[in-house]
Design a binder for these strands. Structure first.
Lengths: 153, 153
DNA sequence: AAGCTCGTTAAGTATTGACTGAACGTTCTG
DNA sequence: CAGAACGTTCAGTCAATACTTAACGAGCTT
C-alpha cells in the first residue's frame, strides 16, 4: 500500500460498504481500485490487501457483476486487470430502486389481504404504497436528471 | 394467524427486510403489525409468529428505536402493546440518506489522498463526490415534498 | 409478604457467511 | 510435451449473528 492515508481510505470504504451488507473485502477492493493510478491484477490486489487470491477472485467478479468495476486486458499479458467502471454509482442506486418497487408490491399485496372496509391497516398500507410509488418514480427521475447532467458536460 | 394470505404476506415482508440486513423476525413482526387491526402485545406476537418472547422483545424494541413502531398502553393493563408508527417509511429513508452523505465524505477523503494533479483516480473520485452530493441533496428535497403532500391532504 | 405476570437480560446454540488453503482446468512458454 | 502462471472452485475454518431457554427484576394482586 502506497501510504498510510491510502490504507485508511481503503479501510473506511471497507466498513462503509459493509453497512450495505457487502463483504468487507469487497469494499476494500473497491476503495483500492478507486485510488489506483492504473488497472490492477488479481495478484497485486491480493498482495496489497493481504488477502488470498481466492477471495479477491470472487469479490472482483462480484464487483464486475454489480457493475462497479470491469475487467481489462493488456497486450501480451494473460492476466486479468481490474479498474473502476465509470457510472457505477448510478447503476448501484438504480439497483436499489428495485427494492423500492418490491416494497410497493408488498404494500399492494397487503391491501389485498386486509378487507375492503376502511381500517387503520388499510390506511397504513395505503400510506406505504403511496410512499414507495412516489419514491420509485421520483428517484428514477433523479437518476435520469443526473445522467443528462453528466452527458452534457 | 388469521388466514394463509396474511401468513404469506408476513413471510414475504420477512424476507424483504432481510435483504436490508434486518433480522428475519424483525420483518415478520413489522409485517404482522402492518396488517393487524389493533395493537398487539408481546405475548400475542410471539404466539402468532411462533417465536420466543425474548426474540420479540428485542426485535420490537429495535423496531421502536428505528421509528417504525411505537409502544402504546392500555387502560388497566400492565402489558406493552405495539402498533405501526405513521411516517415510519420516510424516517427509514431519511436514515438511509445518511449513508449517502457518508459516501460523499469518503469521496472527499479520497480526493485528499490522491495528488492534486489530474488523473483518472481524481476523475473517478470527483464523479463519486458529485453524484452523492447531488443525490443527498435531491433525495432530501424529495422527502420534503412528500411530507408537504402528506400534510396538506 | 407471597405469588403472579410481564418484560428484559444473559448464556448457550445453531446457522449463516466470508475467508483460506489446496486442488483443478486452462493457457502460454521453453 | 513438460512445466509454469493464472484464475476459478471446493472443502474446511472461523467469526458474526439471530434465536432459544432460563434466570432475573419490577410491579401488581391477594
Amino acid at each position: 500500500m502506497p501510504n498510510p492515508e491510502t490504507e485508511q481510505f481503503v479501510e473506511r470504504m471497507g466498513v462503509a460498504l459493509e453497512r450495505l451488507s457487502l463483504p468487507r473485502t469487497f469494499g476494500r477492493l473497491f476503495g483500492l481500485l478507486m485510488v489506483a493510478d492504473r488497472p490492477l491484477s488479481l495478484a497485486e490486489i491480493a498482495r496489497q490487501l493481504q488477502v488470498s487470491k481466492a477471495s479477491v477472485s470472487t469479490n472482483a467478479r462480484l464487483c464486475e457483476q454489480i457493475g462497479l468495476a470491469r475487467r481489462v486486458g493488456r497486450r501480451g499479458d494473460r492476466r486479468d486487470f481490474y479498474e473502476i467502471e465509470p457510472g457505477g454509482f448510478e447503476r448501484m442506486m438504480a439497483r436499489r430502486v428495485g427494492v423500492v418497487h418490491e416494497m410497493a408490491g408488498l404494500a399492494a399485496e397487503g391491501l389485498a389481504v386486509v378487507g375492503d372496509e376502511p381500517s387503520p391497516a388499510r390506511d397504513r398500507l395505503t400510506e406505504m404504497l403511496d410512499f414507495y410509488l412516489f419514491m420509485g418514480e421520483e428517484v428514477e427521475a433523479l437518476l435520469e436528471r443526473w445522467r443528462e447532467m453528466r452527458d452534457e458536460s
